[in-house]
Amino acid sequence: MAEIWSTLVGAGAVVVGAGLTGGFTLLKGRQERTDKERDRLEQRITRHREIRREAYLQLLDCAQKLSLCQGRFVGVDGLPDDLQAELGSAMRDLSRSLLVVRMEGPVEVAAAARDLVGHYDQLNGHILTSGGVSHRLLLEAHTATLGAREEFLRVTAKALDSAG
């Protein structure tokens, strides 16, 4: 009878041990799956932040190119075809980069980008209608544009910080 009891106790211990091992294995598997999902989410957030950052930098790069182009119109009489084409091309590039920023968002960054591009567009309109620009007008436009640029940089920094 003692042998039967020892056999039953041994078999019970094996069953309980197998159950505990299976339970711990299941918990470990769930934890690993949760960790992998968290890692994928962090990678997705990082990728999206980099895409936004690239869009913001592209807008600033296009704005700088347009600013340099606009500066070439100081004191110019008339509107030479090559400068007019360069100005139009630079403005189109800036407008395209604005569309990307608007798609990537967030809303505050898109609004600041629209304001920044609006300053460049306003000066472009003046150049195209008058055929040139005075030093005073360029300085006033540049000062206003710098304020819009600083606001754009402020909201992009905030957006990139909150995306992390």
Rank of each mutant, 00 (worst) to 15 (best):
L41S: 12
T46R: 15
D39A: 13
L87Y: 09
S130D: 08
E54A: 14
E150G: 05
L153P: 02
V155I: 09
A85C: 01
R30F: 04
C62R: 15
L26M: 14
R52Q: 12
G75N: 03
E151W: 07
L160Y: 00
Q122I: 00
A111P: 00
R102N: 01
L57I: 07
R72V: 00
C69V: 10
C62H: 14
M1S: 08
L123W: 01
M1H: 05
G19V: 05
Q70A: 05
Q58A: 12
R92W: 09
V74Q: 08
G12E: 12
E108C: 02
R154M: 10
L146Y: 08
D77N: 11
V109H: 03
S6R: 14
K28Q: 15
L27I: 12
T21S: 05
H119M: 14
A111K: 14
L60E: 14
E86N: 04
L8A: 14
R38C: 07
P80C: 08
E86D: 09
T25M: 12
Y120M: 09
A55P: 03
T34Q: 10
M1K: 04
R136Y: 06
R149H: 12
R38Y: 13
G12H: 10
L94D: 03
S6G: 04
V9P: 02
L123Q: 05
L128E: 13
M103T: 15
K158M: 06
S67G: 09
R149N: 06
A63Y: 01
I51N: 11
V100C: 03
L139H: 02
W5D: 14
H48S: 12
A144S: 11
D161L: 14
D61E: 14
A2W: 01
P106F: 09
A11Y: 04
V109W: 02
G125H: 04
T143M: 02
